[in-house]
Design a protein around this nucleic acid. Sequence first.
RNA 1: GGGCGCUUAGCUCAGUUGGUUUAGAGUGCUUCCUUGACAUGGAAGAGGUCACAGGUUCAAGUCCUGUAGCGCCCACCA
Length: 945
Amino acid sequence: MELPSRYNPQEVEDNWYKFWEEAGFFRIEPDLKKKPFCIVIPPPNVTGILHMGHALNNTIQDILIRYKRMRGFNSLWIPGTDHAGIATQNVVEKSLAQEGAKRQDLGRDKFIERVWQWKEKYGSTIIQQLKKLGSSCDWQRTRFTMDAGLSEAVLEAFIRLYNKGLIYRGNYIINWCPRCQTALSDEEAPHQEVEGSLYYIKYPLSTRHPLDSARGEQAPGTRQFDYIVVATTRPETMLGDTAVAVNPKDKRYKKLIGKTVVLPMVNREIKIIADTMVDIEFGTGAVKVTPAHDPNDYVLGKKHNLEFINVMHPDGRMNENAGKFNGSDRFKCREEVLEELKRLDLLEKAHPHTHAVGHCYRCHTAIEPYLSRQWFVKMQPLAKPAIKAVKEGKIQFFPARWTKIYLNWMENIQDWCISRQIWWGHRLPVYYCQVCSKQANELTVNSEQFTVNCKLSTVNKKGVIVSREKPIRCPACGSTDIYQDGDVLDTWFSSWLWPFSTMGWPNTGNKQQATGNRQQATGNEPRILKPVACGLEPSDLSYFYPTSVLVTAQEIIFFWVARMIMAGLEFMRDIPFRDVYIHGTVRDLTGKKMSKSLGNIIDPLEIINEFGADALRFSIVSITAVGQDIFLSEEKFHLGRNFCNKLWNASRFILMNLEPGEVRVELCQFFEKEKLDIINRWILSRFYSVLRELNQALDSYRFNEAASLLYQFFWHEFCDWYLEIIKPKVNEQHNQIVMYKVLEKFLRLLHPFMPFVTEEIWQKLPHEGESIMIQTWPHIQNNMVDKKLENQIESIFNLIAQIRNMRSELELKPRQRVKVSVYSHEETKKRLLREKSDLVMNLAGLEVLELLTVSKRPNATISAVVEDMDVYLHFSDLVDIAREQLKIREKIAASARLKEEAERRLNSRDFIKRAPRDIVDKEKERKERLGREVKRLERMLNELQ
RNA sequence: GGGCGCUUAGCUCAGUUGGUUUAGAGUGCUUCCUUGACAUGGAAGAGGUCACAGGUUCAAGUCCUGUAGCGCCCACCA
């Protein structure tokens, strides 16, 4: 068979993907004869393009899905995308802007239409890219958070929560993004350190003080309370101040409590109030109170019944309440206010001050705490069961440390602001009756009284109607003057339903729902599910929910993971997944998060084009230690590319040397272990030893370890040793069978990691079945594992390495054959050496391998010690005696030191008494062995003189 | 202000429940090798006080405490 000496992924990957897809290998339906394994994809944004974070995330999921599939599970991976409200709206607005238009020019309906058009055109980009990566999702189940079904789920969830009293509307200070012009949740406004200034501003007192308010006339300090100084980082908000607050215990200001000051520039008279919330230590101990622009001040405002004055437009410009600053942008206004204060001599001082300011997670604009009417979800009742589920271990985090972080967040959870003032998203199922709104207060309507058009609806006393569909008339007053709330829901309000909305919730489709004893999808041997009720087809939900594992990044634990747990428990009465595997963040070499805006991305598609998807997958998984961030550079992908190539060439060697008759598949099923020679037994033993470790690694999400096991075994044991050893006798039947068998099985193990190249090679090998991806995972054959044999072979390898080392030191040419004499102090080793002398000769480049019957140094040799073997290399030209002696002396010293250490330990009573028996025994053996070694080396040294 | 992670070879990083000949890998470096699997390769080699200081233990890279440096997350001190 002719194969190129270099593996070319571009030629094969797309073809195999198409083959798998067309063959329907990704299609999964509930099947009671099989145990389910299910993952729902963290839906990428429709606007998304594949970045390394996705590559890592989806490679891990695909490894799990393919692994479990081969282990006999009904292994389903549900894909989909997220409508990503703000992000998508931004993208479409940008393209509008290029046409010189704004969304307002189009109007809401036209704009939404435009977004859908955009989605149809570009929304599947990321899906195509996931396919390039090799993801074995069931694409026919692809969902989108704005699909009809998922929108239905959103409605259902909203209405249920509303009827339970867990959704409410209210006026609060929320995070407002002046650029996106929408409210944001706390999670969407992460704090960032900002270098700002703390300004100390004088607020003149308006009391009838004997020395009246001639500002600035007096030298400072002569009149203590001519004015009160407040400290602020946002001077522009002073225009909305409605009080100054001090701590009641603060002696400095005691006398001033209840007095008033004149707010500069605005000339509003505001009270000085007392509240323990004020920190005496900070600033001057007096704080300006702006109830409409600061969360703390809001609390004070409520408590002390202050006025709430909003001084800003939603776009961040000052409004008419700001007087002469009306129209200025908030930051420009800050400068202007400061100028004015300076002019009035009311700015006492300013000093640099770094503080944390929330920033919009979409556009990075500094958020403004802003008073507005929004919708919220009451979170504490939802958090309670979610805390319990994790505490009881029903959901497990990997690595476990995220448990604490999750619990800490859950226990301090704040209500969730879910309304967004954008257009793209799920419209709130909230309607207002104009008439009732006006009359307000008195109306109370019970949900049972609603008209047919208002199933599951409620109306509250403010004329608010929550309904699936627009009510024809108000259930309270009968008015038809009804309009829908303009807001849409937070994108995450649909995402948190994802694990069950993708499976058809709240409808279960046409299928009957089978309930009852569903078995846990943990452990590895798939057990057959008992059909619960005869003749009932299980629904997706009853069969696949809860899902098995969620694979995601730490950034969205709060956004998404925590909320899914709450939603699952609330709506499904069950956890959404059993395990949560949190992988690291992909960063560049300087530790910065890879992002397009920073320009430090490595494009996975370029890597795929250059090295292949397999190389990308294998590399990225190899360098991902559990829970650690990964620092990426392009060179790191050489690891996978080289491994791919190695696999390719080793397979090429085997394919070129396979005698078709010898490796008929059935022949390989029945070979007898006893008929195999020692090297074949060794490689099989190693294979199954590695398999055992591999299973353990995969079952505990240690993917890097799994990759490393495969790499080390294949490259450094199978290729470097095994293939080199059998090469001269590659035609012999036992070699044929074993090299074929190990390769074929190894390909299966590697398949979840490198699906394409393994399929390509597997198809070229003699095989049964359509595709490697639906083959079974090899079983561990314990009777094949022989640890003793593995050790013995390893010491033969050590001997060969030692001889090579000696040759190298003597600078012998590779072709130069030499004579080596070996004496083994161990009987089985002697036999082994005799049996495998050709092997040693071959691999160490020997002309003669003499097996000594007594341990005595032959003349004109240099010597070495390998375990229990004395090794002598005949080198008649010139033996540098002095150098030989030095080397042996060094070795003696090293061994003697180790021996002493062992002795010291064995002499310690505590060690003998407390250490376990086997450790003590091992130590004794070790001491004795080292003792023998020292003696042998000393003898060698003597013989040299 | 709290919480978490990291510090091991020149570089990038593994090291699961503490157990020992010689602390591993990839990459880089040095020397040698292109006689048909692979130079994206093979052979040999150099290179480590496991951040520092204490402690627990018969035994510590591994557990505990503290210190330093780096990084991340959370938090309404204006």
